[in-house]
Design a protein around this nucleic acid. Structure first.
Length: 357
RNA sequence: GUAGCCUAUAGUGA
């Protein structure tokens, strides 16, 4: 049975829920009785493919086969309720769990809070957090992360910061299971990035470093995104180097963020350098976003010929120019007085069935 | 030795 369960789990991870369900059917055909682990694995896999209905169906099947769900099953089920507005379903599952006499643990509470967070119900998430004490459950790092994220999502920034401070205080207590981590800081930094608060983002990053918490690709891309929105790029370049020295391997998103920051500062030469480095030193192939940023940078610098060359180059690489890229290239040609080319591009765009906003 | 929670609207044109 355990061998089957391992196979189901592996199939779900590698080939998705459909493959896992096939194995499940094979189990039954071979007269192997699936247990609670089998079902929990399958239900957890439904989350990946956002198959909330399938998860519920599996719960029904469990009951039909007289397999009792445990706390892991319910937690996985609640984790399937992260589509907007499904917090009430998650609440129902939680109550059902309690009614079945299954005790909630910290993961179950976290899963419920997370469902509330995705439904933009920070007050509900908060109520769950408060209720944990009553259930004899101690909030952990993830609990705080979820609640901070819930507040941040709902625009309750002050509350998010207060929670963060509380988290830091709780972390000081002996044998505390709470410790701000990379994700905690990433949530806060990306919130700052979204509203272009570079200084605050940078300050958080410095705190993070002084606490000895390692940044990752998300930290870097969030900070670079903050740079872009604040029209700063030299500090972004520095951060890019600094993080590599710390062992962060910038991925494509990081490069794209840096390219965007350079583009919005009009640094097309630097953007070209970064673009080449992305290819050569990291072996990352540029995507439509990369080209979009680079072409914008050239357009802003009046480099219409270069913009056109890049436009051709991306197509030679099999990339389909987006509406934004067409707009930028056409604009570049107009600025360069290349009316004829601009008109040709416009026709080509229409032939590609792309419309401008 | 097998299953669950922060992980994806935590990060780029979107």
């Amino acid at each position: 049975l355990m061998t089957w369960n391992i196979a189901v789990s592996t199939a779900a991870k590698v080939n998705g829920i459909a493959a896992a369900l096939e194995l499940y059917n094979d189990m039954i055909a071979n007269n192997v009785r699936p247990d609670v682990v089998t079902y929990s694995t399958l239900i957890a896999a439904c989350r990946q493919s956002k198959q909330w209905q399938k998860a519920l169906h599996l719960l029904g099947e469990m009951e039909r086969r007289c397999v009792a769900p445990n706390v892991v099953t319910y937690t996985s089920l609640m984790a399937c309720c992260q589509e907007a507005g499904q917090w009430q379903e998650a609440m129902q599952i939680f109550r059902r769990m309690e009614a079945a006499g299954v005790e909630a643990d910290v993961a179950a509470c976290n899963s419920l809070m997370s469902a509330c967070s995705h439904s933009l119900e920070w007050e509900k998430a908060w109520a769950v957090f408060t209720g944990m004490q009553r259930l004899g459950v101690t909030p952990n790092t993830r609990s705080y992360n979820i609640l901070i994220r819930a507040c941040e999502r709902c625009g309750e920034w002050q509350r998010a910061l207060e929670l963060f401070r509380r988290m830091q205080r709780v972390a000081q207590q002996p044998a505390s299971v709470v410790q701000p981590n990379t994700i905690t800081y990433n949530i806060l930094i990306s919130a700052c990035a979204k509203s272009g608060r570079w200084e605050e983002a940078e300050a958080l990053y410095r705190d993070m470093r002084s606490e000895g918490i390692m940044p990752d690709e998300f930290t870097l891309s969030s900070l670079l995104s903050a740079c872009e929105r604040s029209g700063i790029c030299t500090q972004g370049m520095e951060l890019f180097e600094e993080m590599q020295a710390l062992g962060v391997q910038p991925n494509r998103v990081c490069y794209n963020c840096l390219l965007n920051a350079l583009a919005s500062s009009g640094k097309w030469q630097d953007a070209l350098t970064v673009f080449d480095k992305m290819r050569r030193s990291r072996d990352l192939s540029p995507d439509v976003v990369s080209y979009s940023a680079l072409i914008s940078a050239c357009e802003r610098g009046g480099e219409w010929q270069r913009a056109l060359d890049l436009f051709e180059q991306m197509q030679a690489e099999g990339l389909q120019p987006s509406a934004k890229i067409f707009a930028v290239v056409i604009n570049a040609c107009e600025k360069g007085g290349k009316w004829k080319t601009a008109v040709e591009l416009f026709r080509f765009m229409q032939a590609c069935d792309i419309e401008l906003e």
